[in-house]
Simulated scan of single mutants.
Amino acid sequence: MSLSIWHIVVGFFFSNGMPHFIAGAAGKRFRSPLGANSSARVNLIWGLINFVLGTLLVLWKSPTPEWQSFLLAYWVVVAMFAFGMSHFKGDDF
């Protein structure tokens, strides 16, 4: 498999979504493209948008069983993290 621009874009979406998703799931304010001090809800949604865009790009460009397995595991971990953070949430959510 050779590296192409879409690999870089997919990596950007997944890695950019992570700090926003974590801050949002933890109920903390964090900088986002929508504002310097965005609410936890905004960051959670922004993180999920990044994850969805990365997922759609993978499914469009490389719908192989290896990538599908990666996506399944990725979304299971995202769901576990989101539901497990409920007892760590801050006051901002």
Rank of each mutant, 00 (worst) to 15 (best):
L56V: 14
V9T: 14
W46V: 10
I49V: 15
W60D: 04
A25K: 04
P33D: 02
W75C: 01
I5M: 07
S4I: 12
W67N: 14
N37C: 03
W60R: 14
G47Y: 04
P33T: 02
M85G: 02
W46F: 15
A40G: 09
S69H: 13
H7E: 01
P65I: 07
K61M: 14
S38R: 07
T55L: 00
H87S: 10
F12T: 10
S2D: 13
A26F: 09
V58S: 03
G35D: 03
A23K: 11
L72F: 14
A79P: 07
S2E: 09
F70Y: 15
I22R: 10
W60H: 15
G47E: 01
S62L: 13
A73P: 06
F88Q: 08
G24Y: 01
V9R: 06
G17T: 04
S38E: 01
A25P: 14
I8E: 07
L48A: 08
R29L: 02
A25Y: 02
P63M: 10
Y74R: 06
V9L: 08
V77P: 00
V77W: 11
A36G: 12
F51I: 05
G84H: 15
A36N: 13
N43R: 00
S2C: 01
I22N: 05
K61I: 14
I49G: 05
L34C: 07
F81Q: 01
